[in-house]
Nucleic acid binder design. Structure first.
Lengths: 262, 262
DNA sequence: CGGCGGATTGAAGGGAATCAATGCTTGTGG
DNA sequence: CCACAAGCATTGATTCCCTTCAATCCGCCG
C-alpha cells in the first residue's frame, strides 16, 4: 500500500515557509502584534504558577518573554497530558479569541516573564488583516507542533521521543538566537517530561540514563547538554522535518530583539 | 504535585463555545466562506486519492461535502501517521493560506465529494474580518482535535483509544445531523486506524474483536454499529470533553444543509 | 481459477508500566 | 549548624500490553 519510498530522508529538507503572497502581511502582522504586546506590562510568574486555567472566564493571549511554560490538560484519572512546551518568543492562547473559555491550562514551567493581552483586545486587533494572518500563522505552527507530538508518541519509542523533544527544543531556541551553544536549561521535572511524551517518570529516567551513557545528551538538574548533536539528530530521525517559524517570523523575531526588548 | 482533584469528571461538561464577542462574526464568516466554496464546482475522488500532497506547490483549501478523508504524514521508516480524520462539513488546509507548501498529505478515505479553493483565493477572502475569524476558529478546532489525539495516544490504552475515536466520530456526525442512529460507515482499513491510533493493525483487530465480544461496538466491513452507547461513553472516559463545533457553527451547518447542498 | 488486499488469529518476545525502595537536594526550622 | 521533611531522581524486580512474526481465511476482481 505504502509506496516503496526509498527516499533517503533528505526529501523535505526545507521547513514550511510562508506563502509568498502572505509574507509581507505576516511580517507586518508580527510586528504589529509585538507592538501591541509591548504596550502591556511585563509580568513574572514562578514555577507551577498557572497563567491560564481551563474553563476560567475572560482568558488572555500571552507572549512569553523569557522562560518556559506548557499547555496541559487534566485527564479523568488525575493524570495530566502536557500538550505543548512554550519557549520565549512564543505566543499562546490565540484561540481564546474565538473561544469563551480556554480548553487547557497554561502553566509556567519555571520562572518566566510574559505579557498578556485580553482576548477582547486581541479580537479587536484581528480587524487588521495583517494581524489576523499572523494569528493564523501562529496557530498553524502550534498545530503543527501538536501533530508532530502525536506522530512522535504514536510511532516512536521512548528513546527517539526524548531525542526529538530535546532536539526540537534546541533547534527552536537556536533559531531564535536564544542560545549559542548546544546547552539550555529545561525547567521540567522528569514527571512532566513523561506527561508530555506519553511515558512514565521511571521510564523517562531510564531512557535519560541511556542517553547519558551513550554520550548523546546529558540532562542533569534541568540543564540539557547536547554532547553529540549529530547522533542526536540521527536518533531523532523518523519524523518529518521540524516545522518552525520560518524566515519571515525569524526576521520579525530578530527585529524584536534588536529593538529594546523591555 | 497534582492536586487531589476529586472532580467527578462532570466538571467541564460544556464544549468550548465561541466567545460572545465573536459569535456574530463567526457565524457571518462561516456563511461567507461556505458561499465562497459554493462558487466552486463539487469534485469527487475515490479511495486513496490524494487531495493534497505534502510539499506540492499551490495547495488548496478544501471543504468536504461528503465522505471521509484524512490528514497524514509519512515517517522516515515508511510508516505513516494519520493525524486527523475529516468528515463531511470539515474544512481542511486553511493553514495553506500562510504556508508555501503543505506539510501533510490529505487523502480521500473512501469516495468523497469536495470543493476546493485556491490558497490565493482564500487569502483574499481573509481580508474579510469575519472570514478571518472563522478561519481561526476552524484551525483552533483542528488543533484541539490534534491535542486530543496526542493525549489519547499518550495516556489511554488501545481499548479506550478506539472507543474515543469511534465515539468522537459518532458525536461529530450526529451533531452535524449526518446520522440519526448510532450507525455510520467508516471507510478506513484497520491498518489506517492503527496508523491513526498509534497501534498496530494486529492489535486494532484484537481490540475490535474484544469490543465486539463486549457488545459495545461492532465494526464490520467499514460500518460502525454502536450497540451500547452508554458503555462506549464509559469506556471512552478519561479525556477532557470532546471539543467540537459549538452552536454557532452548528447553526451555520444547519443553514448550509437547509440551503440546497448542491 | 488465481491473485490480492484486507481481516483474523496464534505464538513468542520486548518495551514500557507498575510496584517498591533508596538516594539526593533543597529549603525550613529548631 | 544540624535535623528533618518534601520533592525529585534513581534503580531493581516483576508484570503485561502491545508488537512482531507467521499463517490462514475471506471477499473481490480480472
Amino acid at each position: 500500500m505504502t509506496q516503496k519510498l526509498s527516499l533517503p530522508g533528505s526529501e523535505i529538507l526545507e521547513r514550511p515557509r510562508f506563502a509568498a503572497g502572505a509574507t509581507e502581511d505576516l511580517l507586518l502582522g508580527a510586528r504589529r502584534l509585538r507592538q501591541a504586546f509591548a504596550q502591556s506590562q511585563t509580568r513574572f510568574a514562578g514555577r507551577d504558577v498557572p497563567l491560564i486555567r481551563a474553563g476560567e472566564s475572560d482568558p488572555t493571549v500571552i507572549l512569553i518573554r523569557s522562560g518556559f511554560a506548557f499547555r496541559s490538560c487534566l485527564l479523568a484519572d488525575g493524570r495530566r497530558a502536557i500538550l505543548d512546551i512554550l519557549v520565549a518568543g512564543d505566543v499562546c492562547g490565540i484561540d481564546h479569541v474565538v473561544l469563551v473559555r480556554p480548553i487547557e491550562d497554561i502553566t509556567a514551567a519555571g520562572r518566566i516573564g510574559y505579557q498578556a493581552l485580553s482576548a477582547t483586545a486581541m479580537r479587536e486587533l484581528m480587524a487588521d488583516p495583517a494581524i489576523a494572518l499572523h494569528a493564523l500563522a501562529l496557530l498553524a505552527e502550534a498545530r503543527w507542533r501538536g501533530d508532530r507530538l502525536a506522530a512522535s508518541i504514536g510511532r516512536l519509542d521512548a528513546h527517539a521521543r526524548i531525542c526529538v523533544l530535546l532536539l526540537d527544543l534546541h533547534d527552536r531556541l537556536r533559531r531564535r538566537g536564544l542560545i549559542a551553544q548546544p546547552i539550555y536549561s529545561l525547567p521540567l521535572t522528569q514527571e512532566q517530561l513523561a506527561d508530555h511524551l506519553g511515558l512514565t517518570l521511571v521510564h523517562v529516567n531510564r531512557t535519560l540514563r541511556r542517553l547519558r551513557e551513550e554520550r548523546i545528551v546529558l540532562l542533569d538538574r534541568q540543564v540539557v547538554i547536547i554532547q553529540d548533536l549529530e547522533r542526536l539528530r540521527a536518533a531523532a530521525q523518523g519524523l518529518p522535518q521540524p516545522a518552525e517559524l520560518p524566515e519571515a517570523a525569524l526576521a520579525a523575531e530578530r527585529a524584536r530583539s534588536a529593538d529594546g526588548r523591555n
